[in-house]
């Protein structure tokens, strides 16, 4: 077992364990904070795959943006309404349906993983991905990039409009 394997299993254990807490915890705040470690672990896996830019973006957007938003939402609803936010009690039917769909999904994924003949690209040691990503975004993928930015601008204006209409 070399260093890469050890690091991979370290992050894999973090991801799986914290994701389990997200799903199974009765306290919704624990779920929200546990999501932090899931995102962090996924970022670690990205670094292991030489995708450093994606890893840092993952930290920035998911932890800095989405997670803070989720935590604020949960925190404020709990404290303002005065109700303890708990996830509902899981019944036998839910367990059965959940378990079945997990088995089907997992089985399909493992089957596809094993039956596909994967094309393995030769591993080229990369020093920087950010320059390549920037160049592609401003040449080949300029239109999708601009479309996405216009969409985000629309979302921002819409949010401001809804917030002001009181």
């Amino acid at each position: 077992m070399n260093l890469v394997d050890i690091v991979f299993y370290f992050f894999a254990v973090i991801i799986v364990a914290s994701a389990a807490v997200v799903v199974l915890s009765k306290n919704i705040m624990y779920s929200a904070f546990s999501l932090l470690f899931t995102f962090f672990g996924v970022a670690g896996i990205y670094v292991l795959l030489n995708a450093d830019f994606i890893a840092v973006t993952q930290l920035m957007i998911y932890i800095g943006g989405i997670l803070v938003l989720i935590i604020f939402g949960v925190m404020l609803t709990t404290k303002i309404t005065g109700l303890e936010m708990k996830t509902g009690i899981t019944g036998k039917a839910q367990y059965a349906i959940g378990g079945l769909s997990t088995l089907v999904l997992g089985g399909t994924l493992i089957y596809v993983f094993n039956s596909t003949s994967w094309f393995k690209s030769p591993s080229v040691p990369t020093t920087s991905t950010v320059e390549a990503i920037g160049a592609s975004l401003l040449t080949n993928y300029l239109l999708p990039f601009e479309a996405a930015s216009v969409l985000l601008l629309l979302a921002m204006i819409g949010a401001a409009l809804i917030a002001r209409r009181k």
């Binding site: 450093d52 932890i63 943006g65 997670l67 803070v68 925190m75 020093t127 320059e131």
Partner: peptide
């Protein structure tokens, strides 16, 4: 000495933010 230094600093500052929310809540 990574090529994303500046970006990385901004990304990890989010973790401290979460610490603040966690402590306050």
């Amino acid at each position: 000495n990574i090529n994303l230094g500046l970006f990385y600093i901004f990304a990890v500052s989010a973790i401290a933010t979460i610490g603040v929310v966690m402590g306050g809540w």
